[in-house]
Simulated scan of single mutants.
Amino acid sequence: MERSQLIKEGAISLGAYLLFILITLLVPVLGTFTLLLLPVPFLLFTNRHGLRPAIFLALFSLAVLFIITGPFALPLILSTAAGGIVTGELLRRKKHAFGVLLGGSLAFIAAILINYIGSIVLLGINPVDEIQNVLRDSVAASEDMLGFMGPQNEEAFEAAYQFINHLGYIAPVMFVMFGTGYAFLVQWISSLWMRKKSGYLTERFPPFREWSFPRSFIWYYLLTFILVFTDPEEGTALFIAAANLMPILEAVMIIQGFAFIFFFFHKKGRSVAFPIIIMIVSFLLPLLLTVVRILGIIDLGFDLRKRMNSQK
């Protein structure tokens, strides 16, 4: 490709990136959506031109953004460009969809960690502590407003304060879940765009009904459950390990359970609307979500889908 065409597409990618940043920072509602689009210009440029031109684009974007935002440019570029470039390069190499997701997730999680550590070391600001302070002020304001309604709200406020106090312990799992979720959405949006606009055949995720985790996750879940059952002292290494592992493993079992539900209705020839409705209702009713998690444990432990497929 001619250098002029490369420069032209680089300028377009930079312009789109700066536009998304302005909307994200200045338009509250629409900015929530454009936040997902920030890595996309780097992803598409990397997929089309390769790793080296994409790195030069990121460095040039850093210089331009530094003029506009000052030192804030570095964490902003790091948070968005790194994951976009890694995801775009993996798509260019036609890696499996889950392999692309893994690479993108690791890149976004690494960027979050670097920014988090940099904020503490360079600025003396712990973002988690700041979030806790904001949440405490919000709960305190709500408590003052609703205090006249009687003592029935005391347990709810105590639970809220306890959750806020535990945020410092579960920061790692929040980083992992946010990075993975963000990577998934960026990959999904970019793949839709690439297939629609350029006819590029990206590797698709398999149907949700076919998703399944390795059976070893059962043992991880069991060991973590036993660790939680021993009730380790708050603040110890075992307590922090349990507090971070359990949410991830519970999410794994819930995904496994929903995948089995989708498989079951597909096997029975039912409409996909039924499992979708069950999924929506499950997030509204925590008890039903517990049933889904148990179903995922059973499916993963006894391979229910394989048994159903083997039935005549």
Rank of each mutant, 00 (worst) to 15 (best):
L36N: 01
P39C: 02
P41Q: 11
F42S: 02
L43H: 04
L44H: 04
F45E: 08
T46E: 04
G50P: 01
G50Y: 09
R52K: 15
P53Q: 07
F56C: 03
F56T: 09
L57N: 02
S61T: 12
V64G: 04
V64Y: 06
I67T: 13
I68L: 15
T69E: 12
P71R: 07
L74V: 12
L78P: 02
A81L: 07
A82M: 13
G84A: 04
V86T: 10
T87A: 14
G88H: 08
G88N: 09
L90V: 02
R93E: 08
K95N: 09
K95A: 10
H96Q: 10
A97Y: 12
A97D: 05
F98W: 09
G99F: 06
L101R: 01
L101K: 00
L102Y: 11
G103Y: 08
G103N: 05
S105N: 10
A107P: 04
F108I: 13
I109R: 01
I112Y: 14
N115G: 15
I117F: 13
G118E: 07
S119Y: 03
L123P: 00
G124Y: 07
V128E: 04
D129Y: 11
D129Q: 12
E130Y: 09
I131D: 00
Q132K: 13
N133T: 08
V134T: 11
L135T: 05
L135W: 07
S138M: 15
M145R: 15
G147T: 06
F148M: 11
G150M: 10
G150I: 07
G150L: 05
G150V: 06
Q152A: 10
E155Q: 14
F157L: 10
A159M: 14
A160L: 10
Q162M: 09
F163G: 08
I164Y: 10
L167M: 14
I170T: 09
M174W: 09
M177A: 11
F178Q: 11
G179K: 00
T180F: 15
T180S: 14
G181Y: 04
A183G: 05
A183Y: 07
F184T: 03
F184S: 02
